[in-house]
Amino acid sequence: MSTHHANPLDHAEIRQGTVLRYIVAFIISALCMGAAMLAVQLKLPFLHYAALVVALTLIALLSQAALFFGLDISRAQIWKSVSLVLTVPLFIISVGLTVWAFSSLYERTMLPPSGVTQPGMSAPAVPGMGPMGAPSQPTLLQ
């Protein structure tokens, strides 16, 4: 445990990280993204394509976590790793459940987009309407 009198450069978090590690992380990330980009030209079926991009992205992310951020279970880094592992499910829950819920909501509440381009409908056609049109008088039925 270092105190503020000791040399801060001796701190464990400074000591971690080497030239090699950072360069490897760079190369893996760049290669993965490059390969994923090239996959667009391959015209794979969408599911295969998506799986490929997801897999390559995961490899890039893991290499960054391990080599850039230097996450491991050493004394200096353990709490960062733990907090990340505890938070990752929240990313997945938030995005996953949202996408799942909206896939059914869209299907059940939206008219198909083809209907949108029905002729004869345009926003400012009606006076007193439109996003910031002049306000009209209220009607009070009696």
Partner: peptide
């Protein structure tokens, strides 16, 4: 508590399985 939020909008037209 992180995976229950949609019970605030059951009446919005969610599918029964959601």
């Amino acid at each position: 508590g992180w995976s229950v939020w949609a019970h605030h909008f059951f009446t919005m037209g969610l599918a029964p399985n959601s």
